[in-house]
């Protein structure tokens, strides 16, 4: 069985004031189907940049990223969008719900874009599963931080993606909400057989994943 994701000698450089800065250096690792991985490291080590590359939101400077044998680094924006639309769910630290869309509309957005039948009822089903059945028609400003993040996760999993990329998903939440959100996320991944790559500073959260990758100064220092 082939790998879900394969990174091979990935480098990411930025040029600032004519100086080239190496953000990621020779990153190589594989991700299996249904595997959960946490990416940890100090601030500025390159964790977020790594999941931006995996999500196709940045282009590698060199090296290759394969998503189910398709090479992301050789695709154009439309092709990457197509893969992201159907196969990758992204969860942000700051939730990023669309402010003038209701909770239901935020979740049904990706379903509608993917031409699902009855996107609204499917979105309701997901929100219901995440304990938000009484919040369908509320706008983000009318939701608490924990509720907003639940809607954001619901949006990211609506398409049943094969992999979820989460960037500090509980970074803006209190301990109670952190617990709720992590339970919800991991239960979902188990139920739906999805993979997860999660950037976090929270060791408790990182310990819930099967594998932990530590990045230091743009290099994988530990992968176990």
């Amino acid at each position: 069985m082939s790998k879900l994701l394969k990174l091979s000698n990935v480098n990411l450089n930025y040029t600032i004031d004519s100086k080239s800065i190496n953000i990621l250096k020779n990153i190589s690792f594989d991700v299996d189907y249904k595997e959960t991985i946490s990416v940890v490291g100090e601030s500025g080590s390159g964790k977020t940049s790594l999941i931006m590359l995996i999500g196709g939101l940045e282009k590698v400077s060199s090296g290759n990223i394969f998503f189910r044998d398709s090479e992301l680094s050789k695709m154009n924006e439309d092709e990457i969008s197509e893969i992201r639309r159907k196969n990758i769910g992204i969860v942000f630290q700051s939730f990023y719900l669309i402010p003038n869309y209701t909770a239901l509309e935020n979740v049904s957005l990706s379903l509608e874009i993917n031409k699902f039948d009855n996107p609204k009822s499917k979105a309701k089903e997901i929100l219901d599963r995440f304990g938000l059945s009484n919040r369908f028609n509320n706008f983000p400003s009318q939701l608490s931080g924990g509720e907003q993040q639940r809607v954001a996760i619901a949006r990211s999993v609506a398409m049943k993606p094969e992999i979820i990329l989460a960037d500090e998903p509980t970074g803006n939440l209190d301990s109670e909400n952190t617990h709720k959100i992590s339970n919800l996320l991991f239960n979902y991944i188990e139920d739906e057989n999805a993979s997860l790559i999660m950037v976090t500073h929270d060791n408790n959260l990182a310990n819930l994943t099967k594998r932990k990758i530590t990045i230091k100064d743009g290099v994988i220092s530990e992968n176990k």
Partner: peptide, 9 residues
Amino acid sequence: AVQKSIGIN
């Protein structure tokens, strides 16, 4: 940016 992140080009 959110729309782009969920695959709308």
